[in-house]
Design a protein around this nucleic acid. Sequence first.
DNA 1: TGAAAATATTGCTCCAGGTCAATGTTTTTG
DNA 2: CAAAAACATTGACCTGGAGCAATATTTTCA
Lengths: 189, 189
Amino acid sequence: MYSILKAYLSERSELPESDLSCILDRFQWKKVRKNEIIIDFGEVCRYFYFINKGAVRIFTINSEGVELSRFFAFERTFCTTLPSFIDQQPAHEYLQAIERSELLVISRKDFYGLVSEYNEFDRIYREILEFSFISNQKRIYSFQGYSALEKVQLLLKMQPDFLLRVSNKLAASYLGMSPSTLSRLKSKI
Amino acid sequence: MYSILKAYLSERSELPESDLSCILDRFQWKKVRKNEIIIDFGEVCRYFYFINKGAVRIFTINSEGVELSRFFAFERTFCTTLPSFIDQQPAHEYLQAIERSELLVISRKDFYGLVSEYNEFDRIYREILEFSFISNQKRIYSFQGYSALEKVQLLLKMQPDFLLRVSNKLAASYLGMSPSTLSRLKSKI
DNA sequence: TGAAAATATTGCTCCAGGTCAATGTTTTTG
DNA sequence: CAAAAACATTGACCTGGAGCAATATTTTCA
């Protein structure tokens, strides 16, 4: 049950077995059904999530009622609505399971406890922050610089299985184009 | 000369006078002329910069030769090409002064020295990381959800003096539209 | 498992915003 | 400080991608 997270931590640190099991103890098992909202808009985010199985997305809804997806995460990934988690203000976005998923959940208090208790865990957290920053940055450049077709090609190159795993509608809301445009482009590739 | 940085640090921490002056000692004064490239594409970024006076931008050039601006920073801001600074790989972007500017420069080694030596400085660095992440995130949503006109209005609301300070051409490269479109929209507002 | 709901595909139409080019204005620099 | 270079504005034109709607397909769940 914890073996995937254990492997994840082992690969990224030198944590001894004893520390690993202390760390794993702080996580709780949680099953969510497809489309379940894990963190709601306006709610303060009090947990960090590790995706053991399944997939989630982070999205918001603009003033015209259109869903905008910012981020998709799959197995073996840490994920949460980070701004709200950091500053404990109401989230301006949703965290949603897009498949039936199994999550390992840790409270904010325990999470920061691990960060200050284990140097190696602090390093892993910093890597998560940096990774998030850098992937956001790449996305900004891709929105600025590319046509719809190029954005699809770029996505296929960076995450070849994304379009197989994510529905046309959600993928379009991630790429910033309409579902019909994405559908047409897919038939061209 | 160091008074602006000193005030910046004081506002954000409880650092005593003695620590403050130790910290300030690690920074070097640097003047740059307008348009000067501070960090070049392909160069490994070895410094963090505090903008004492002036303004800089971070940009890249896409495959069609078009400049894409990701970020503008003005007085009283820390700034660098963060991905390259973090992992010491060649930068995929440029850091450029867009006005004649005065910078306070600290080497990566000294910077991380301060991070580990002073808890308060570590906190300030984390705030910089988080701020960068969150501002990138807002920008992603704004690219996805808004028309050209709405993007300009949003920018005016968030940073009212941006368009007064940044040339039409550069502002357009930040907003992801052509200079002619931005020019037309400005006359409508 | 089969009816209902959600999603995907595709044709048609239209317009926001791009490109190009001409002109006016500002900035740079010898 | 004047000539040159860079930039801003504006008009004319064109096209990528949006919106809508009809149909086909897939998913959901009683």
